[in-house]
Structure formats: C-alpha cells, structure tokens
Amino acid sequence: MLRNTKKEWLIAYILIAPFVAIYALIFVYPTIDMFFLSFQDAPLVGAGDFVGIENYERLPRDRRFGTAFWNTAYFVALTVIPGTFVALAISMAVTRLSGRTQALVLALFFLPYILPVSVVFRIWDWALNFQFGIAMHVLDAFGMDRIPVFKTTTWFMPAVAFVTIWWTCGFSVLLFLAGLRAIPQEIYEAAALDNTSRWRMFRHVTWPLLWPITGLVLTIQLILQLKIFDQVYLFSQGGRPNDNLVMVYYIFQRAFVNNQGGRAAAIAVVLFIMVIVISVINFQLTRLSERRK
C-alpha cells in the first residue's frame, strides 16, 4: 500500500503540538527570560537597567553566595552516594522476601516518598525538636545532654540529609528492584553451582548488571539534591537561616525577600549550568564505566 508521508507528518505535528506549546510556555520562555533578567539591575517584577555581567561579577565577592554554594555541595555529598547505597541495600533485602511480606515491607519504605514536605517536617520536628522532641526525652532518660539538632550549623546539614534520605529513597528502591528483577535467575543458579560466595556473586554478577540503574539513580539524586530548598527552609525557621543557606534558598531570599530579580536570576543561571554540567559528566562517566565492564 502507498503511504501518504505528508499526511503522516502532519498528524505527527498535530499530536506533539500541545506538548511543545506547553513546554515552551512553562520552561523555554521562563528560562530565556531568566537569562535576560540576569544581565539587568531589576526587581522581580518590572523593568530594570542593563548592567551587563555585573551581577555575575558580584558572586565571587558575595559571602552568602559562597556559603550557599558550599552548603549545597556538602548536602550533595551527604545524600547522593549514601542515599544510593541505602536504597540498594534495602532493595536487595526486599528481594529476599516474598508474597505479602515483601509487598508490606516495600510499601513501608515507599510510603515516606509520597508524603508532602510539610508532613515530613512535622514528623521529624516532632522527633528531633530541642524542647519537646521524642529523641530528646530519650537522651534525658539516659542522662545525656540534649542536642539542638536544627539550631546549630554543625548538626543541621547532617540532620536534614538524614531526613532527606529517609524521605526520598523509596523511589530509588523501586528503580533498583526493577533492575534486580530484570537479571536472569539462571545466572545466579550457575554461580551457585560453582559454590560462589554471596559477596563474589554481588561483586561479579549483581553489581555490574545493576550499574546502568545505579547511574540513573545517581543522576536523578544529583539533580534533586542540587535543587534542595523545602527541607532547609522549613527546618531553618527559628534558627540561623543565613548559616544554612543553599543555592535555591539564596535565590528565594534575593528574589522574594530583597526583591532583587536580576541578582537572583544570575544565581539561578549559575545553578542551572551546574545541574546541566554535573548531570552530563555523571552520565558520561556512567557510560564509560559500563563500557569498561
């Protein structure tokens, strides 16, 4: 049968047109506008004066920008790789279960992921609050001094990182479970016949075959944690927010508190470029490691 190529292309364009229009409206246009705004001395809403790269030149001398940058890097180090290995360990433990027990345990680990951040904040503020937190009463029972977890710079980021891993690892667990179930059981049976230990089986069979999923989880976690804001903002209330700044929190302060749209846009552009560059590097390293295996 003869194919009407022009008609097929027309139908294809019509089908993708709504997606392209929405994508351009809610992502492409705001991104382009953000780039133009970053070269202006302007409020968040309204016209401003063109200042060239002045907003970018200020960043290296901005102490709070340096604090936000290093706090973000510290938070990424505390969450991305540890959270990935925690999810991997949980998924491997869940695969050893079966039936309703497996479904129940998996649901318990995935449940935090569907909770809104406000509920997560209430749960852990109730547990770790310096004045009335349950954990503080436990310390009192053992005669230990209470720890102001969310009020001190030393404990703040590790505590928020712990809460974030607890909150977000459920999705990573599902990804690892999908990868584990895709591994043919015949490979494990053949390894068992050779009396291969569990560690060698994991090192030479499971880990290499799971590497693409691991790379995907690392990339997703990198992007998510570089954009950390909600938990830091909520847990900083009543504490020392300027010491706990992360990149998105600093953008929020510049844009919505100080009404400095141009300077906020410059920081947002830097973060945008960081996310793209780090994601591409991580993806390429993942592909390179996969080829070597």
Results as ranks from 00 to 15, higher is better:
residue 91 S to T: 08
residue 174 L to A: 11
residue 43 P to C: 13
residue 143 G to A: 11
residue 72 T to I: 15
residue 82 P to K: 03
residue 199 W to P: 03
residue 24 A to Y: 04
residue 116 P to E: 05
residue 62 D to S: 06
residue 239 G to V: 09
residue 243 D to P: 01
residue 289 S to N: 14
residue 93 A to Y: 03
residue 119 V to E: 03
residue 168 T to K: 02
residue 175 L to E: 06
residue 56 Y to A: 05
residue 83 G to N: 11
residue 200 R to Y: 10
residue 36 F to S: 09
residue 179 G to N: 00
residue 243 D to I: 02
residue 263 R to G: 11
residue 288 L to Q: 15
residue 123 I to K: 02
residue 9 W to K: 13
residue 201 M to L: 01
residue 45 V to C: 05
residue 210 L to F: 05
residue 193 L to E: 00
residue 80 V to W: 02
residue 111 L to A: 13
residue 187 I to H: 12
residue 200 R to E: 11
residue 101 T to P: 10
residue 37 L to S: 07
residue 191 A to P: 02
residue 22 I to H: 13
residue 176 F to N: 01
residue 100 R to Y: 03
residue 149 V to C: 05
residue 76 V to E: 00
residue 132 F to Q: 11
residue 202 F to Y: 13
residue 211 W to R: 09
residue 136 M to W: 12
residue 18 P to Q: 10
residue 44 L to K: 14
residue 289 S to C: 07
residue 251 I to R: 02
residue 158 P to A: 09
residue 130 F to P: 04
residue 142 F to G: 14
residue 47 A to G: 11
residue 242 N to I: 13
residue 125 D to E: 15
residue 196 T to F: 03
residue 21 A to N: 08
residue 266 A to S: 13
residue 157 M to C: 05
residue 199 W to S: 09
residue 148 P to H: 01
residue 17 A to R: 14
residue 171 F to E: 01
residue 190 A to N: 06
residue 13 Y to H: 14
residue 126 W to G: 08
residue 247 M to D: 06
residue 107 A to N: 14
residue 249 Y to E: 01
residue 81 I to P: 00
residue 171 F to D: 05
residue 159 A to D: 11
residue 229 F to Q: 09
residue 172 S to I: 02
residue 10 L to W: 14
residue 176 F to C: 09
residue 152 T to A: 07
residue 117 V to P: 07
residue 88 L to N: 07
residue 205 V to D: 11
residue 276 I to E: 09
residue 28 V to R: 02
residue 27 F to T: 12
residue 187 I to S: 13
residue 207 W to L: 10
residue 205 V to P: 12
residue 4 N to S: 04
residue 94 V to P: 10
residue 202 F to I: 05
residue 217 V to G: 03
residue 126 W to L: 12
residue 35 F to R: 14
residue 127 A to D: 13
residue 39 F to D: 11
residue 210 L to D: 03
residue 124 W to L: 14
residue 230 D to H: 09
residue 189 E to V: 04
residue 236 S to D: 12
residue 181 R to E: 14
residue 233 Y to N: 05
residue 155 W to A: 13
residue 169 C to F: 07
residue 61 R to T: 14
residue 65 F to I: 06
